[in-house]
Amino acid sequence: MPRVLVIIPAYNEEETIAGVLASLKRQVPDYGIVVVDDGSADQTASLVRANPPAALVRLPYNLGIGGAMQTGFKYALRNGYDVAVQCDADGQHPVEQLHLLVDRLAKGDTDMVIGSRYVADSGYVPSFSRRVGKSVLSRLVDMLIGGGITDTTSGFRAINRRALKVFANRYPDDYPEAEALVIMHMAGLRAVEIPVKMLPRQGGVTSIRPPHAAYYMVKVGLAILVDLFRRPKGTLGEP
């Protein structure tokens, strides 16, 4: 049995975090849980403390989703986990389907398994602005990494130790999901996707609003182009 860690990046998620932790404890009691509190100003941290054995790692200030996830990756490596699963704190990720990702990863022929919202049967209808903002880029990323991934921005994913090491060294700051695929592709790692059913947001506010769509396109597009031509970085970051 691989040791699995669920990483939950949380920024002001007091409305939903306790529910997510409760369902994790119920559905996957064998998995370790770490909540990376990304400088929340609300009760997120104390709610996590009230819910052992979930571990709380508190960043001193907001680093953005990418910086928070990378903290979780480092935590996983240092505590000897074999697999890390990303799970959003807003309750949109279907916790009862986490084991599907882990089981698929256990086959050993891939370094990342993505729970896709677009594959048939997933029952997911993205909003219009999300479709427009992401479809072009999604296709570009899919093309760059050699095909096979339709939902390049899904945050519901599991990675193995090889991918953990790559991401502990380098992970994008904001909107990291698509770019992370390119980074791991350049490092010679593989990703596959399987269908999952997503839930609507359980509370709080979404971090992606229409004005961000243009910024998202430009920022991630540029970052991906840079990744393609970047020379591999040394071992800066992880000792």
């Binding site: 990376v36 054995p53 571990a55 960043l59 001193p60 680093l63 480092k74 240092r78 505590n79």
Partner: peptide, 21 residues
């Protein structure tokens, strides 16, 4: 630096409580 600080703080808490991992 921020990530390192967060991870080390967690470590200190674990060591202090003697519980955890």
């Amino acid at each position: 630096l921020a990530q390192e600080l967060a991870l080390l703080s967690r470590k200190v808490e674990e060591l202090r409580s003697g519980a955890g991992s």
